[in-house]
Amino acid sequence: MKKRLTAPFLSADDLSALRDLRTGDSVLLSGVIYTARDAAHQRLLGLLAKGEALPFDLRGAAIYYCGPTPAPPGRPVGSIGPTTSYRMDSFAPALYERGLAASIGKGPRGAAVKEALCQSGGVYFAATGGAAALLASCVKEAKLIAFPDLGPEAVYELKVEDFPLLVATDAQGGDLY
């Protein structure tokens, strides 16, 4: 059975639904999520280090580790599959500590991220790597909101509908890998 969830996760109900997720659960995610991968994470952490505001509100947010292909005419975005998550492991705990609710990527996470999920009640979702055209059909709107000079690594705000995910690592220390 697939669970339907909506991001961002702000209400007490949203957060408890997130905590109730277990490794292996299938989820259809709708709502607003943000893309960020290697270079964007470096900048986000740089802003935090300087005490400056991030381009989006981290509280209850879901970050998608992804750099899409350019949008062809008539589409909000091009192909948009996940990138490998371990490269963001050194950045993720600081973001979960500051309210990040979920990250989305592919492949296993390190011990520090798992610990951060347990501490924060957050979750790590896996999307299917290489299913980028399929996933594009779940993206209804895309807006460039930060770091345009990073090209494909810029931060996009995406409006998604029924984005198919698996709970890979949950807030109880469960790990699908």
Binding site: C66, G67, P68, T69, P72, G78, S79, I80, G81, T83, G129, G130, A132, A133, L134, A136, S137, P152
Partner: peptide, 12 residues
Amino acid sequence: IAAAQCLPLCQD
């Protein structure tokens, strides 16, 4: 979907 909609198979 990629072939039918002329979208790259993978974003990478």
